[in-house]
Write a protein that binds this DNA or RNA. Structure first.
Lengths: 191, 191
DNA sequence: CTCTTTATATGATGCTTATCATGTAAATTC
DNA sequence: GAATTTACATGATAAGCATCATATAAAGAG
């Protein structure tokens, strides 16, 4: 059955959002085209009217998941004008973020996966990382532009690594300790 | 055809080593049982004489991949008795490590994957991470035991995150910059 | 209101892959 | 060295999944 133009556009958006969440939760190979469509409330047949392939969906969903990363600085400034960097660290390293990969950082959720993905996905991720670094640099202290950027990149790496490690281990106490340790070090580096 | 006891034991070891490499290179879902056996020079049929399932293999191969991580400190001390920590940072953040995931850090290569794996794999990874933290703590400077451990965990996170990001991006210059930035920050934190 | 278009549903198709069943030849045992 | 065991090979089996073909009913055009 046919749906209205707006309905179709909305369906497409929901497919993208749903895919972005499911991929982060279960990995690219852990989610089938039919799974995504079913979660949206459609059947698998209509999929290829929206996307040319699963790879195409993966790349676009990745881009969608990265949108948030590009707005890091702006959001943090709005939420905590006094200490935006601190707000980012707190949010990123919160147990709630660790426990909800579907709506969190795509690098932590799909990082090792994406490195093995097709070109389109790699490009989307690269742009996302670039935007995240730029946003972080803008609110990172430092004498020179270059120094701020270097520090921002390292902070980003610490955040990602800590979240990956915290999700990896099968021991809640150790997981909490990892998040806390990263937060402590990132704070003390700020002085 | 049957092979000797030693031959069988050697085959089992080669299956494990090969799997540990292939999984890190292509992800758990990117490698089939038949792929591993073929790479070893056997056929898929004999697999279940060695392991009870692919999950079983994955868990044991992960354990194998983590062996190296537990010996971090010892190896670094042997190679660079003066500055073992520096040796670890240099080696971990080297382009050669980035470009050879099959023989490198299992957290960076399979981190986000493993978080979705079965219990046995999670446990193997948890033990590996624990050992790596312990090893790093032993050569990390700091006033108290607790402080050394906190710093070691954060350094580990920075290493992992930087490698994941460096492998993720589709731009060699940005990738190199990420590795260099992490190294710079880790060094300056040491004073 | 009729005609045309099309977004989605249903139902193949073909491929990949984990696992199992059976055969066989070589190692081990006695 | 005959009998037995067994590690591996060959060849199913069955399930999952990406993609495509066709049908249909509802939207949009006139």
């Amino acid at each position: 059955m046919r749906v209205s133009r707006e309905q179709m556009a909305e369906n497409r958006e929901r497919i993208l959002d749903t895919a972005a969440t499911l991929f982060r939760e279960r990995g690219f190979d852990g989610v089938g085209v039919a799974d995504v469509m079913k979660a949206v409330g459609l059947t698998h047949g209509g999929f290829y009217g929206h996307f040319s392939s699963k790879d195409d969906l993966a790349a676009q969903a990745l881009g969608r998941a990265f949108v948030h990363a590009g707005q890091w600085a702006a959001e943090a400034k709005a939420a905590e004008p006094e200490a935006p960097l601190q707000a980012i660290f707190d949010r990123y390293l919160a147990p709630s973020h660790r426990d909800d990969p579907g709506h969190g950082c795509p690098v932590a959720a799909l990082g090792s996966d994406t490195a093995r993905q097709g070109e389109a996905s790699r490009l989307a991720a690269t742009e996302g990382v670039r935007a995240a670094i730029k946003g972080l640099s803008a609110i990172t202290p430092g004498a020179t532009e270059e120094e701020r950027r270097t520090t921002a990149i390292a902070s980003y790496a610490t955040l990602v690594g800590a979240l990956v490690l915290a999700r990896l281990v099968d021991d809640g106490a150790l997981s909490d300790e990892i998040l806390a340790a990263a937060k402590t070090e990132l704070q003390s580096a700020q002085e």
